Amino acid sequence: MVTNTPYSQEVLQQLPSFLRLQQEVKELTERIGLLLGGASLLEAEPLGPVQPITEHYNVLTTFLRMVQSPPLRLHPRSLQGLRVVLDSDRSACSLHHMGHFIIPTTFDPSTLQGFLQSHAPEARLRTHRHKQVQVEEDSLVQDCVETLSLGGLSRDSTVSLVQMISCCRRLMELRPLLGLLDLQDLHLCVSHFYSVTQDGVLCVPWDWRA
């Protein structure tokens, strides 16, 4: 049963505006992606309330005007398969270790095209490597869950893929010993410290010591 409170009424009143803005943001994102050689434009953070999505809409609108005048001369599919994140806290373009471009929301259009074109090969290489590491992590997590009869195995957002892989490998090396313990239905979360959550999830540091 939904309680009819002033807050819920306000949320319902804002819903049409949010849905309209959400559609306009989607269309802007697609237009910008085409101008950026077919790259996918990612959101730095999930969009929720109307105010944040309004701010994001304004950022996209300003960014679109900047890449349109003068327009970037990129082949429509030259950056297809690559990703771009807009970051208002950055002052210069950079390439993330996972392979996506990080572009400041205010930039010099004359330098953007050269940066994207010159770093595209490295971006594809890093993206490919990241996907390979993701596949390896998924495989190791599944092996750990099945071999140790865990209820689940996850990692904190602050733990990297490489750190998670290292932790899983060590868990597998100790499976003869861990197999003697009753780990049935235990959910393990790889983090940076030891703790137990209210839900009963056991957190262990990725570089734990036996």
Rank of each mutant, 00 (worst) to 15 (best):
L95A: 05
S139A: 15
Q113G: 06
Q117L: 13
F115N: 00
A120E: 05
G152A: 06
S118W: 05
L125G: 07
S118I: 06
S160C: 10
F107Y: 07
I103M: 02
L171R: 02
S166G: 11
R170L: 13
V162E: 15
L112M: 02
G151I: 03
R169A: 07
V141Y: 03
F101R: 00
D138K: 14
L140N: 04
T111Y: 01
L140G: 04
S88M: 06
L95W: 01
L181W: 04
V145Y: 02
T111Q: 08
E137L: 13
I165D: 01
T105R: 04
P109K: 02
D138Y: 13
R126W: 10
L148A: 07
E136N: 11
C144K: 02
Q132K: 12
G114M: 00
A120V: 09
S149P: 07
Q142P: 01
G152R: 04
G151E: 07
S139G: 14
F101G: 00
P121Q: 03
Q113W: 05
L161Y: 12
E146P: 07
L140M: 09
G179A: 11
S94M: 06
I165Y: 05
S157E: 11
C93I: 04
A123N: 03
V145R: 04
L116D: 00
E173M: 15
F107D: 00
L95C: 04
H97T: 15
T105Q: 06
L178G: 03
G114W: 00
D143E: 13
Q134H: 14
S160R: 04
S154P: 00
A92D: 14
I103Q: 00
S91H: 15
V141D: 04
L125T: 14
C168I: 01
L174G: 12
G114T: 02
L181T: 06
R175A: 09
M164G: 01
H97Y: 14
H130I: 10
T111C: 03
L171G: 01
H119W: 12
L171I: 09
D143T: 12
